[in-house]
Design a protein around this nucleic acid. Structure first.
Lengths: 232, 232
DNA sequence: CGCTATGTTGATCCATATCAATAAGTGTGG
DNA sequence: CCACACTTATTGATATGGATCAACATAGCG
C-alpha cells in the first residue's frame, strides 16, 4: 500500500467517520492490485473475500442468467463496490470486470466486518453508503418500469450532461454496446434511438454527444428529481 | 400505543439490537393508526416525517411518472418501510397505500435519526436492514432485465410456493392487476401468461394457484439462488 | 496492416401493449 | 339481503416497441 494513495481512500464517505486506529486496522491487511482491461474481478455467487475499492480505471458490474447477460452499473473512482455482500457475509449478486486498466484496493472482508463490529462511526458511514445504494437502485428500477427505452436514453444523456457540469458536449464514457445493456435494450435499438433523438435536439458522432437543444431534449425526456437525481 | 403490541415491534430485526432505554425513546413519540383500504399513507417526493411500521394489513409501494404507475413492492406485517428515506432525511422515492384495512405504527423520523445517532446497536441493525433491502432490489432488477414476463411470472409463483411452505396450492395474495404491474406487465398479458403456464404444470382458478407439476414448472422457470432467494 | 469486435442499417419477427367487448366479481346503499 | 354500480379479469383483434437476423461499415488493437 503506497502512502500517497491513503488520503484518497481515507476521504471516501464510507471511511470518513471511522476511527484513525480502526482505519489503520483496515488497511493493514489491504493491498493494491492493478488489472488489465477485461479482467473479471468478482463473480456472482462467490462469497465476498474482499471489499473492493476502485482507485483508478473503470469497472462494470453485470449479471447473468441462463446465458443472458446484463450490465447493472459502472463503477468510477474512487468508490467501493459490493459493500452489502461484504457486510452481510453473503455471496455476490453481481459480477464485476474491468473495462480498462484499473487499480483496486482489496480489503479483506473479514477485517471490514470486524471493524464494522467495533467502530461505531464506520457503522454509520456504512448506513449512509447502503441507503444511497438502495435509493439508486430504486430509481433505476423506476426508470426501467416507467419509461420506454427512448425515454431512458434521453434521460440518461441529461444525467450525463449534469455530471459533465452542464456542458452540452461530452463523451459517452462507455461502449454503446454496454450502454445499451445498461439501459435494457439491444445495440441495434440504441443505434436507432440515437437517430430518433435528433428530432429532440441531440447529435452524436462516434462517442461524442452534442446536445443542440437542451430545452427540446428535456421537454421530451421529462426528467424527474425522483428518478434522475443521483445526488439524493 | 397499546402494551400488547410492543413485543412484536421490539422483535423486529431492525430494533433487535437497540438499547432498552433508546427503544423507549423511540416508541414514546410513536403512535398507532388504523387505516381503511385504499388510503395513501406516503407520497413520493414528500419529506419523511415518520418511519412506518406495518403491524396489520397490507401496503403497496408504487411509483408514478408522467401519468404512468407501477407497483414496486408489497409490504407485509410486521415490517418497516421507507427506512432509507427516514435515515437520510430525504424525500420518499415511492408512494404507499393500504390495499386492505391496516394498522401502522408511526415513529417520528426525527426520533429515529436521533436514536440512530446515539445507539450503536440500532445503527448496526439498520445496516442489516438496508443491506437486505438493497440486495432485494438488485435481485428484482436482475429479474426484470434478464427474464421475459412469462419467466418472471413462473419464478414469482415458485417463490410464493416456497413462502407457502412448499405447498402446491396457495392463494395469490394480490389482485392480478397489481401482480401484473409488479411483474412489469399488463393485466391482459398476465392473463395470457397464466394460460401459457398450463403447459408447464400450473393451474389457476380465480386467485387460487395449483402447481400440478412442480418439476415441470421449475424446469421452465429455472429459478436461481441469485435472483429468487429472498432470504439472503 | 489486417484481424476481430463494435457499430450501423435494413428486413423481418415476436413479445407485449393497446383497444375493445364481455364477463365476473366486489363493495355500497337502499 | 339484494340490486346496482363500478372495478377487475378475460378474451379477441390489432398495433407497436423492441428483438432478432443479416449484411456491411468502422474502428480499435495486436
Amino acid at each position: 500500500m503506497r502512502p500517497e494513495d491513503i488520503p484518497g481512500i481515507r476521504a471516501l464517505p464510507v471511511f470518513s467517520q471511522i476511527d484513525e486506529e480502526n482505519f489503520e486496522r483496515l488497511i493493514r491487511g489491504a493491498y493494491f492490485q492493478s488489472f488489465p482491461s477485461h479482467i473479471e474481478l468478482i463473480t456472482e455467487g462467490h462469497p465476498s473475500d474482499f471489499l473492493h475499492i476502485l482507485v483508478q480505471g473503470k469497472v462494470e458490474l453485470f449479471a447473468n442468467w441462463e446465458g443472458r447477460e446484463t450490465t447493472m452499473a459502472t463503477v468510477h473512482p474512487i468508490s467501493s463496490f459490493i459493500l452489502a455482500a461484504t457486510i452481510k457475509d453473503a455471496e455476490y449478486l453481481m459480477s464485476g470486470r474491468t473495462v480498462e486498466r484499473s487499480k483496486v484496493l482489496l480489503i479483506p472482508s473479514i477485517d471490514v466486518r470486524n471493524v464494522f463490529a467495533d467502530d461505531n462511526g464506520f457503522a454509520r458511514s456504512v448506513v449512509n453508503e447502503l441507503a444511497q445504494c438502495y435509493r439508486t437502485v430504486v430509481k433505476s428500477q423506476k426508470d426501467l418500469k416507467l419509461r420506454t427505452s427512448l425515454e431512458r436514453l434521453a434521460n440518461y444523456l441529461l444525467r450525463q450532461r449534469a455530471r459533465a457540469k452542464a456542458t452540452d458536449e461530452f463523451d459517452l464514457h462507455m461502449e454503446k454496446k454496454k450502454l445499451a445493456s445498461f439501459l435494457g435494450m439491444t445495440p441495434e435499438n440504441l443505434s436507432r434511438a440515437f437517430k430518433e433523438l435528433r428530432k429532440h435536439g441531440l447529435e452524436i458522432t462516434g462517442s461524442q454527444v452534442r446536445i443542440i437543444d437542451p430545452v427540446a431534449l428535456e421537454e421530451f425526456a421529462k426528467p424527474s428529481r425522483l428518478i434522475d437525481d443521483y445526488s439524493s
